[in-house]
Structure formats: C-alpha cells, structure tokens
Computed example of a mutant assay.
Amino acid sequence: MEGCVVLQVRDDVRLAMLEKRRYGVAVPTLPLLVAMLTVAVCLPLWRLSTCPGAAPDAALVAPAYLLLMPGNATSLPSPYPLHKLPPLDPHHLIDLRHFAFRFNNFPCNETASPLLLVLVHSAPDNIGKRRAIRETWGGRRDALRLLFLLGEVDGADQQLRLERENLVHRDMVQGSFRDSYRNMTYKHVMALKWAAYFCPGARYLLKTDDDVFVNSPALLEFLSQDLSPWGARRLILCVPFHAATVKRSYRSKWRVSPSEYPGRVYPTYCAGWAILYSPDVAFLLYSEAQRDRYFWIDDVHVTGTLAAKANLTQTDLGSLVLSYEQVRALEAGGNASDVGHFLFGAPNLELASIHRLWEAVEGRASIPPS
C-alpha cells in the first residue's frame, strides 16, 4: 500500500537512538520517551503527520526491542530456528504447495555476515529502476547485500530478458507465482523466506521498493552506530499507519470485500516502501504467514495482521524520512546537510530524482566498512 511521508522534523530521533545503543537493552520507543518528557510539545508534532488515520494516542503504545551488544549477542538463540518449520516448508509459500525459485542468487554465501540485506520489490518491466539503484545507493555491495524480487511473467521473450539481466548482475530472485499487484503478499513473504534460508547471518533486513531512495551511507552508519552493529531483536522500523479504515468503495484502488477482510479497521501496519526488520522478526512473520490465509495487501497483512499475531509492534521512523518538499530542495541543487540526518527519500520517485538525490548525498557521505 502506498505510504505517506512523515513531515515532522525532530532532532531528538538520533539522540534517543543513541541512548538505546548506549544501554543495549529493550527501552521504550522515541514517541513514548518524548511524550513522557514533553507532552505539551510532542502531541502537536505527532498531529503534523500526513498519514491518513494516524492517531496521536497510538504513538503512546511503546514497542519494546532489544539491541544486541557483546554481552548478550552470543547468549540469545538463533533468529532463524529452521528446525521448527514443517519438513515441506521449502516447497510451500503460504497457500502455494509447489513453490520454487525460477532463478536465484546467493550473495550471502560468504564468511562474513552482512550488516544489511536489502530486498527490493521490483516489477519485471522496471529495468530502468533496477539500473538506477545499481548505479546509485545500491552499488556498494561490499557494505550491503542487495536483491531484486520478481514473480513470473507471461511471455518467453520477457522471461529471457530477465534471465539475461540476471546473468549480468547476479542480483535477482524470481518466484513461481504470477507477478501482479494482488500477488504482492507472495513477493513479500518470499523475501522473508529467502532471508531465512539463504542469508541467516544478516544483522538487519530492509524491505523496500524500486522507486524509493535509500540514503545507504547514512543507513549503514545508523545501523552500526545509532543502533548496534551486532543487530537487534523484535525490531520493525517503519512509517506506521494507525487505525486505517478498510476501503469498501468500488471506486477505490484499495477496495477490500467483507469476505476478504471482515473488520472495519486495520491493525497498525507499516508503509511498505521502507521497512527495517531484525532477523528474528523476519522469521516470526514468515512463520505466521505460512500458517495464515492469504490477504493481498501485503503491508497490512505482513506488518499488521501477522505482526499482531506474533505480538510485535512498530517503531516510527519519524523525521528520518524526507518530505517531498525536502526532496525537491535537494533536487534543485541543495546540499544533503541542509535537511539534516535522513535515511529515506519520499516514495514514488522518478529515476532522475533518485540520481540527483544520490549526487547530493555523495557530496558529503562516506560508507563505513562492512
């Protein structure tokens, strides 16, 4: 589902994250901390959100997550207990009983565990968008691992083009389901499946789309310094929607029938264009998805319904997302330092915008070693 952009600008985001890193324990999220300290100031800031259905009171619900440190990183169980899955799980994807990867790649088959695994939802025809990501924020494969996720296509010629592209770049994964809008949940759960089976050592996972700008240097720095280079547990970092109403109108792109979803309000869920998972969360959501019925709006289903069943909550990205106004300012020749610390640009960007944002970031950014 299309995300909205959080407009509030708060310098205390990084400070709160630094406090979490310093103590290395599960602590309340930033919205709760700010509300406890300065309720009179914080609530108006939360009302500045452009998210439909966003409720200031929802910000007071505090997700708890754990940042790993040398003292606790080795004492916790594996985030991917594959032995708990059914024997036929490798061949199943939700209700697909004969699932397979039509082609696959294995960038994590190395001694060192990557800090960040990036899984990009991409449509088969979006060749230019994949090229733009490879040429900009996704190009440093020594610092992150990146894969584009696709489904099956209709024509043999289109399939051949995808296979040739994959032979050149070795960064694409194709699952045995039709690539269509109502099959996005298959693609999302396939991403979680791929991480569990083929990249269990990644400290963090980013699910994103191919029209999103990721400030990869800043994101890698944020993960290794503001959070923890050893990883985290029970972390879902995103732009959350609170109390969004289910669309019933036949004129709505997001119309959902009562038989598909009987409730009137969705649980809190993430805008799907940028979701940062800790690996244990990826496994928990994957396990729930394999047992649950299919629902086609993947943002709602995976980060809302399934997250609630797994007793997981979302942490707000807040001002770490650029507004469209800030994106336009950078496109017009502004310096990345003028907009402060950010991790993501607004979604639904044109290719030229992604290139210009990368040029703005390169003017001051340095990528830490993996």
Rank of each mutant, 00 (worst) to 15 (best):
3 G>C: 08
4 C>W: 13
5 V>M: 03
7 L>V: 00
8 Q>Y: 04
9 V>M: 06
9 V>P: 02
11 D>L: 09
11 D>R: 14
15 L>R: 14
15 L>S: 09
16 A>F: 07
17 M>E: 12
17 M>T: 14
23 Y>M: 04
23 Y>N: 04
25 V>Y: 15
27 V>I: 10
31 P>H: 00
32 L>V: 01
37 L>H: 10
38 T>G: 04
45 L>H: 00
48 L>F: 01
49 S>V: 00
50 T>N: 06
60 L>N: 08
62 A>Q: 11
63 P>S: 12
68 L>W: 12
69 M>N: 13
69 M>T: 07
69 M>D: 12
70 P>G: 14
73 A>W: 13
74 T>H: 14
75 S>D: 13
77 P>F: 11
79 P>F: 06
83 H>W: 13
86 P>S: 08
86 P>G: 08
86 P>D: 08
87 P>V: 13
96 L>A: 07
102 R>C: 08
102 R>G: 05
104 N>W: 08
104 N>P: 02
106 F>P: 02
120 V>C: 10
120 V>F: 05
121 H>M: 09
121 H>Y: 07
124 P>G: 10
125 D>C: 06
127 I>N: 01
129 K>R: 11
138 G>Y: 01
138 G>W: 01
140 R>C: 07
141 R>Q: 07
146 L>F: 05
150 L>H: 06
151 G>V: 01
152 E>C: 10
152 E>Y: 06
153 V>C: 12
160 L>E: 09
162 L>V: 03
164 R>Y: 02
169 H>F: 02
170 R>A: 05
172 M>C: 08
174 Q>G: 06
174 Q>K: 13
175 G>Q: 10
177 F>H: 13
182 R>P: 04
183 N>L: 10
191 A>N: 12
191 A>G: 15
195 A>K: 06
195 A>P: 03
197 Y>A: 05
199 C>Q: 13
200 P>T: 15
204 Y>L: 05
212 V>R: 10
215 N>W: 00
216 S>P: 00
219 L>A: 02
221 E>C: 07
223 L>Q: 05
223 L>M: 08
224 S>R: 15
228 S>C: 14
230 W>D: 08
230 W>F: 14
233 R>Q: 14
235 L>T: 09
237 L>C: 05
240 P>Y: 02
241 F>C: 06
244 A>E: 14
244 A>R: 10
248 R>T: 07
251 R>S: 09
252 S>G: 05
252 S>I: 03
253 K>D: 10
256 V>C: 13
258 P>V: 09
259 S>F: 07
262 P>F: 06
264 R>Y: 09
264 R>S: 11
266 Y>C: 11
275 I>P: 05
284 L>G: 05
285 L>M: 09
286 Y>F: 12
294 Y>F: 15
298 D>S: 04
299 D>E: 07
307 A>K: 13
307 A>S: 15
311 N>C: 08
311 N>G: 07
314 Q>W: 01
329 A>L: 12
330 L>V: 04
331 E>R: 11
336 A>P: 04
337 S>D: 11
342 F>A: 03
345 G>Q: 01
349 L>H: 00
352 A>Y: 02
356 R>V: 11
356 R>K: 15
360 A>C: 09
363 G>H: 13
364 R>V: 04
369 P>F: 07
